[in-house]
Design a protein around this nucleic acid. Structure first.
Lengths: 84, 84
DNA sequence: TTGATATATCGAGATTTATCAATATGTTTG
DNA sequence: CAAACATATTGATAAATCTCGATATATCAA
């Protein structure tokens, strides 16, 4: 599921509805949208996203009550390279 | 540990002693050497290696009583690419 | 300030994984 | 063939992971 999330976040506009307040995906996608798309519980997604941030795979930005998550391309590229 | 094994098998001559009967690494490295290097039990390594073969990550060749394992570069490249 | 909404944390159960010892099977060699 | 050696399979346990519901915390909006 976390790999899927990483994939969706490559091009958020292809996988998520537009945000209502922040009118772009510059900081990624809000946790709620990700939760809805995965059908996992809110607590699970919250944990996943913060784990992934701690790992360096994601970058999170808080805008008011929402947390947005986007890929940390630099780190992801490094991971992928290590594996390769 | 399995990632380590995959790494060692990139250049067996850098990580394993030479084979006594089969005088090359053309088919990879025998299970015993891998087991010794990992310090995992024989049964664990046997299971790991056959899992990895089933996954397509390794190719195994039996020469007499020995089983040799080498990387399946084609499949590995595909995996790495998918992840990337 | 309060209620509503978004996210975070905690504690727990079910499932999966890592790993072993014991044993079985296969292969060579004297 | 029998002993010796290499590998495979089985059954088991401890640890890790997945995932949840309940609850806590943070933030906005009226």
């Amino acid at each position: 599921m976390r790999l899927k999330i990483l994939n969706w976040l490559r091009r958020p506009e292809d996988h998520f509805p537009p945000h209502n307040v922040v009118k772009h995906f510059n900081d990624g996608v809000c946790a709620t949208y990700i939760q809805e798309k995965t059908n996992l519980s809110q607590s699970t997604i919250s944990t996943y996203l913060s784990m992934m941030e701690k790992c360096g795979l994601l970058i999170s930005t808080r805008h008011g009550k929402w947390s947005y998550f986007k890929r940390n391309e630099k780190l992801i590229a490094q991971y992928a390279n290590t594996l390769k």
